[in-house]
Simulated scan of single mutants.
Amino acid sequence: MRTLEVLDAQRSQAFWSLDAAALDKIYLPGSPPWVADRALLASYRKQNVRVQGLRITIVSTTIAARTATTITLRTVDHLTAGEAVDRFGARTPFPAGQPSARLITLTAVRPNPSNPNNQPWRITTITRA
Rank of each mutant, 00 (worst) to 15 (best):
A90V: 07
D77T: 08
S31V: 08
V85H: 08
E83D: 03
A36T: 13
M1H: 13
S100Y: 04
F15M: 14
Q47A: 15
S100K: 11
T72R: 05
S60W: 02
W121H: 10
D77A: 15
P33K: 07
V85W: 06
R66V: 11
T127A: 15
A65I: 04
S100M: 09
S100H: 07
T92P: 02
A20V: 06
E5A: 04
D77N: 13
V85N: 10
T124M: 07
S114L: 05
T57Y: 00
L79A: 09
N118G: 09
A81G: 03
Y44C: 07
T72W: 01
Q47L: 13
R122N: 11
T57R: 11
T107A: 12
N48T: 10
G30C: 10
A39R: 15
T61Q: 08
R38C: 14
R87F: 05
L73W: 02
L23V: 06
A9N: 12
E83Q: 05
R11E: 10
W34C: 11
A65T: 08
L79M: 12
D24V: 04
S60N: 12
I56D: 01
Q10T: 13
D19V: 00
T61H: 07
T124C: 00
A65R: 13
A81S: 04
P111R: 11
V76F: 02
R110H: 12
R55Q: 12
D8R: 09
